[in-house]
Amino acid sequence: MSAQHIPSAAIDPKAQPAIEMIDVHKWYGEFHVLRDINLNVKRGERIVICGPSGSGKSTMIRCINRLEEHQKGRIIVDGVELLDDLKRIDEVRRDVGMVFQHFNLFPHLTILENCTLAPIWVKKMPKKEAEEVAMHYLTRVKIPEQANKYPGQLSGGQQQRVAIARSLCMSPKIMLFDEPTSALDPEMVKEVLDTMVGLADEGMTMLCVTHEMGFARQVADRVIFMDYGQIVEMNTPDEFFKNPQHERTRLFLSQILH
């Protein structure tokens, strides 16, 4: 009985969830984008979020690093609750990497500078060390030879891999992917997905908004289906694809799986 009163984090930090969302609501003016979101993400868990456009899936993961503000409920990331305190938000962002649909690389900086910027300025890492780290991750995403080019000189797939490397340079504990392959030409999707699979294999905690169902089957621990700002269904990929519980999920799957 008494053991239950001790916060789990005090016993074992590993047991503390990576992300906790409790009764989260969000409105854009009158529009209720997120309704009653409850989500617990364990460390090392890979979660794929799918759903029709406008269902709030991007908004949900953008709440996790406070690119969007939630109006009700609690979000606790790695033991830190997201409140208005700017300093804590920056702390959370340091530990949460994010990859965007449109890459959001900095076009005025070279690939290497894109990757070393945050380690140098946020983590106060010496420039030389930051460059070594950057080259390490650029090698991992298989584009070390592009280090001195500018983002505009790279293909979409290469740019997205740079964006992943840029996030990894901050050694994040959690990675968020917001439709990372949606803006890519079909033949470039695979190179980005391969990079993400490699990341998943290493035990990174990942939340990924995507419609790549093959990726979901291969790496996800759980698949979440969202519609009208709610989590409609949440299950293991096997169950999710073979045996969807809700009519809405079945309809959605029949549309994207053909």
């Binding site: 920056d90 300025w121 996030s167």
Partner: peptide, 23 residues
């Protein structure tokens, strides 16, 4: 997206403005 890219890396407002946005 440039603001969001900078913020998601943990840059604070002065850093974001002076390193990413203003240049």
């Amino acid at each position: 997206g440039q603001y969001e890219g900078a913020m998601s890396l943990g840059l604070n407002y002065p850093q974001m403005m002076s390193l990413i946005i203003l240049p």
